[in-house]
Amino acid sequence: MMKKPSIKTYRRLCQLLIIVLFIVIPVLNKNRYSLLYGNMLSFHFWVIPLADPLAVLQLTLKNFSITFDSFVGAFLSLLVAFGLGTVFCSWMCPFGFLSELAVNFSKKFLPRNYKGPGIVASGFKFKLVIFLVGIGFFLIFSTTPVLNQLSLPAWYTRFFQYFFGQGYFSLSILVIAAVLLIEFIAQKRIWCRYICPQSVLLSLTKRLNNKRLIVGFNPEKCRCKGAREHCTESCSLSLKPKNVWNLKDMECTNCGDCIVACKQVGKALTFQVGGGKRDSRGEPL
């Protein structure tokens, strides 16, 4: 009998699809195929627009106006975050995928240097500062939404737009490679946790919803008290998956790696809708 594929298999397929899609789109466009256009900042598929909410927020703050297309695009992105949490980061972001691979390879090939949950427990504050400084700088000194340039997924997609669209080899790929190398050596997803301003709005939106999808924890089932914690080791963001059932959590991206790791131990971690600890029947404790 075939083994049922785990969440991680589906997630990897989804990430690979996006990675390949944004290589293929510029090639298709060059051959006048017109169903998909755009990059990670703004994208449209047939008549459905999608947009980076941060880019749209910047334009809206600067011009006090918003177009229908960009509003719908940003709204759809935020809607996904509202219901499912920041799944964009773990299921779709091409840089997130590369960064995850870099950290996972590092853990495999370099000696582990895991020292607790990171430099600072909450990376979200860092991101928020960068986000606010960037928006302030844009509103006061600049006419161009400068925070767009901090979007590594956008630079990834833009590289292929440049390459296939106009035959230009952009050095942005080296910047991405440099960040990946740093993360490989540090064994931490530094960009995603401490810098990426694009995820701030998504995190803030998911925080508004108390009935969103989160990783729930059932302490009755947990069998690794005090011992080696498979869930913490599996988390590529170095979070503590046993604590993210808390609705105040900003950083968990619902990737489901901890759930897959926990499946072999006690099945204490599962996806659930709404916060709070639950017992084995799904009733709140």
């Binding site: 466009n29 755009g38 900042l41 703004s42 880019a55 334009l59 011009n63 960009s70 006419t143 833009r158």
Partner: peptide, 12 residues
């Protein structure tokens, strides 16, 4: 201040 830098114009 309005350009999203998405490159759709270049692709179309």
């Amino acid at each position: 201040s309005r350009c999203l830098q998405c490159g759709q114009c270049a692709q179309v």
